[in-house]
């Protein structure tokens, strides 16, 4: 039986279809579900094994990127997501999804406290929205299940205005000593502290990152596509394959 992934959308989400497509490519059974369906109880989070919060501009990113979505996760879903994590399931937040995980306190989730905001993603140093291809490298030493055996550079796009990762000094130290830093930019595009592009929680089963690996699943997605080898297996897929592999 295929593991089931829930792609959580809300007003302003716009990357749910490619995220769903990639999840199905690697073997998941994936559903796009509006957060109101969870709030009303029409769908149950615990019927799934992986939660993916995709990219977009939830609620217009008014009041700060993903702030309203983060508050809905905190105040409307209550303990659903922490309970989902504690039961051994996976959570992946991409771009706006990463912002929601950080602002709801699910990441970094020190000591299993998934309700305290310790870090943030704020306006790029450039002061504007950036849409470009970047390269990121896996710097995790083994905690994060999503990056197992990823020893190669992953090129993929960023599409964000508020992607600068910021954390107080003591929190940065804790992230590093806990092996919770996962991805770093090869060339920092937005002023993120210590080039950080993605972090995980203490369990290694919750990952958030600003770049979009789901937008690089075939060589045709790449701006270098005419210069590279033809392949239906682009680097972004590796993260999703590791997630699928976790359930084997």
């Amino acid at each position: 039986m295929k593991p089931k992934a829930i792609v959580l959308r809300t007003a302003g989400t716009n990357c749910e279809y490619e995220t769903n497509h990639v999840l199905k490519m690697v073997g998941f059974d994936a559903d796009n579900v509006h957060i109101n369906e969870l709030i009303r109880g029409d769908k149950k989070l615990l019927d799934y094994q992986m939660l993916v919060i995709p990219g977009g501009f939830s609620h217009g990113d008014y009041l700060g990127s993903a702030k309203i979505l983060a508050n809905k996760m905190t105040y409307k879903l209550g303990n659903d997501i922490p309970e989902f994590i504690e039961k051994g399931n996976l959570v992946l937040g991409i771009c706006n999804g990463f912002q929601a995980l950080v602002k709801s306190g699910i990441l970094p989730g020190f000591g299993g406290n998934y309700k305290k905001q310790e870090t943030t993603l704020t306006m790029n140093d450039s002061g504007h929205f950036q849409d470009e291809w970047i390269e990121m490298k896996n710097v995790n030493k083994g905690k994060c299940i999503f990056t197992k055996d990823i020893d190669f550079i992953i090129p993929c796009p960023i599409n964000h205005g508020e992607g600068k990762f910021v954390a107080p000094k003591e929190i940065m130290g804790k992230l590093k000593s806990n092996d919770q830093v996962v991805f770093k930019y090869v060339k920092n595009p937005n002023g993120s502290y210590e080039d950080i592009a993605g972090i995980c929680d203490e369990s290694g089963r919750v990952l958030g990152l600003m770049p979009h690996p789901e937008k690089y699943f075939t060589h045709l997605n790449s701006p270098q596509s005419t210069r590279t080898e033809i392949s239906n297996e682009a680097a972004g897929l590796a993260i999703f394959r590791n997630a699928f592999g976790y359930f084997k």
Binding site: H59, G60, Y62, L63, K67, I68, N71, K72, Y75, K76
Partner: peptide
């Protein structure tokens, strides 16, 4: 005022 309307929704979420 879209930002204001979004703030209203956010307030309702918090105050229940």
């Amino acid at each position: 005022d879209n930002v204001g309307m979004t703030a209203e929704e956010g307030i309702r979420d918090i105050l229940g």
